[in-house]
Design a protein around this nucleic acid. Sequence first.
DNA 1: GCCGTTTTCGGCCCGACTGTTTTCAGTCG
Length: 581
Amino acid sequence: MENSQIAAVFDEIATLLELAGENPFRIRAYRRASQMIAGLPKQLRDIPAEEHLDIPGIGKGIAANIAQLLAGGSCDDLDALRKRFPKGLLELILVPGLGPKRAKLLFDRLKIDSLDALRQATREGRLRELAGFGPKLEENILKGIEFAAESNKRMVYWDAKLIMDGLLLSMKDCPGVQQLEAAGSLRRGRETVGDLDLLCTARDGAKVIEFFTRLPQVSRIVGAGDTKATVRLAAGIQCDLRVVPPESFGAALQYFTGSKDHNVALRALAQGKGLTINEYGLFRKSDAKQSKPLAGKTEKELYERLGLPWIPPELRENRGEIEAAGAGTLPELVKLKDVRGDFHNHTSHTDGQNSVLEMAQAAEKRGWEWVAIGDHSRSLTVASGLSIDDLRKSFAELKRAQDKTPGIRLMRSMEVDVLKDGSMDYPDPVLKEIDVVIASVHSAFSQPEPEMTERIRRAASNPHVDMIGHLSGRLLGRRDGYRVGFEAVLEAARDNATAFEINGQPQRQDIPDVQARRVKELDVPLAVTTDAHAALQYDYMELAVTIARRAWLTRKDILNCLSHKDLLEWLARPRGRKGTR
DNA sequence: GCCGTTTTCGGCCCGACTGTTTTCAGTCG
C-alpha cells in the first residue's frame, strides 16, 4: 500500500468520525496523521514498523492501523465505521453548506444517503420538516449538488495561476486597493489547486467587495460581507477575497497562505510562548482585547517575533519546516534565476512546434547560459520519433543553429524511449553521440510492477543514460502513473550516477515534490525541465523550480544550476556500478 | 488520538459568514 492510499484511509476515517459525532480532537488526530503521511518522503512500507512512532502525529493507535493496512489493505477502525454509514453519505458532505451534522441529520431523519436522494427530497420540499432547514438553505443545497458532483476536480497549478494572474490585473483597477496578493495553495505552489485565495488591503472593504463581485470573471456570488467574499468564477473554480487593514496584511497573508497544518503548528508554538495568532496579528494572550499587536504588518516580523526566520510558502506544509526554522537549518531554496538552462524539450522534427533554431534563439533570449535541445526517439511513432539517420542529420543542424546563437551554448538531448524489456530505443554507440540522454517510458504502461521496476532499473543502469524522465508517467486529472517501485529505481540511479528529472509540464509535475525530496536524501542529482513542445513553454521552468522548492532543494542539488563547463564535466562522469558523481 | 523545558492527564487554533434564530449552531477555510 502506498502512502497516498494510507493517507486517504485516515482522511476517510476522520470524516466518518465526524459523522459519528466523535471527539473533535480525535478527528483532528486522524486528519493530521493523514497529512503527515501524504507528505512523507519515504514509503511507510519501507520504514521499519517501530520507527513509525517517531513520525510526528503517529502514536500507538494510528501505528497499529498502519500495520494493519500494510498487512492487509484495510483496518478494523475503517471497516467498523464503513458499516455504520452508507458510502453516499460522504458525497453529501461535498455539498457546500452541508457538513457532517446536517448530513447525519438528513440520513437519520429522511434516510437520504446519496446526492440523487438529496436532490429528490429537496425538490419535494421534504427538507423543511427538519429544524434549522429553511428556504434559503434548500435553494443553496440545490445549487450545491451540481457543484458537489464535480467538486473533486482540482485544477492543475498552472491553469489556476493563469486565472489568478488575470484576477490580479483586474483588481489593480479597483479604487482604494493598496496591497494585493495571491495566497492559499497557489502561493504554496501545490500541484493542484482547489480554490483561489486573494488578499488585499483597503480602507473601505465594502466597496472593494462590491467591485470584486461585479468582475466579468465572476459567474455566481456564493457569499459577500464587508471584509470577505466568495464567488464562483466562470473558469470553474471558487475564489475567496479577503480585505484587511494594512497593519494586518502580513498576518493575513500568513494566515490565508496556510497550509492549515502549518498554521496549526505555528499557533501551538505561539501558545507555548503565551501568544496567540489570528489573521489580524500576533498578540499576547493577556491582551484579551487584542489592542496591541506585537506583529502583523509583514510576514517576516510575524515569524521573527515567534523566534523563527521567514519560511518560504512552498515549505509550509508542516513537514518539518517549523523545526528546521527553529534550528536555523532551513535550506536556501533554489530560485528561477539560478537556472542556467533546460535539458528536455522538443522541436518540429517530432511533436514540437518550433525549429531547432527557434528553440535555440528562444533559450538565448531568456538569458540562459546553455540549452540541450531534444526530440523523441524512433519508437514513438505517434510523435514521429527520429530515425538514427535523421538524428545524425540533426547534429549538423544544431551546429548551424549554434553559429546563429553566439550568446548560448547548444547541446543535443534526446528523450529516448525505454522499451518493454528495459533496453533503450537506440543502440549504445548512438546514445554515446547524444550529449544528454533522458530515458522515458511511453509504452506498455500496464506492465506489472515488478516488470516495470526492472525495466526502469535497467534503463537507469545504462551507462549512457543521464536522467530518468517523468518517472511516474502520471497525467494529473487524466490518468494515474504506472506501477513502479520508486526505491528500487532510486537505488539503481544512485549506484550508476543517473539523475532524476522534475518535469515541469503542468499535467505531469513528475517526479512530484515528495519523491524529489527523497531523491535528495540519497544525494542523487536532479534536473528541472520544461518538456517544452513550443518555445513559449520554456515558461514551465518556473513550475519545475516551484516543485524543486517544495522538495526543499537548493541549487547544489540541481544540475541546471551548473555552468556549461561544470555540466560537461558531469556529463563525462565515471559510470557503472557504484560510480561516483 | 496525540503529546509533554509548565503536564503522563488535560489540554488540543481561530474568526467570518449564513441562515435560522431571539442568542447561536453549523460550515468553511
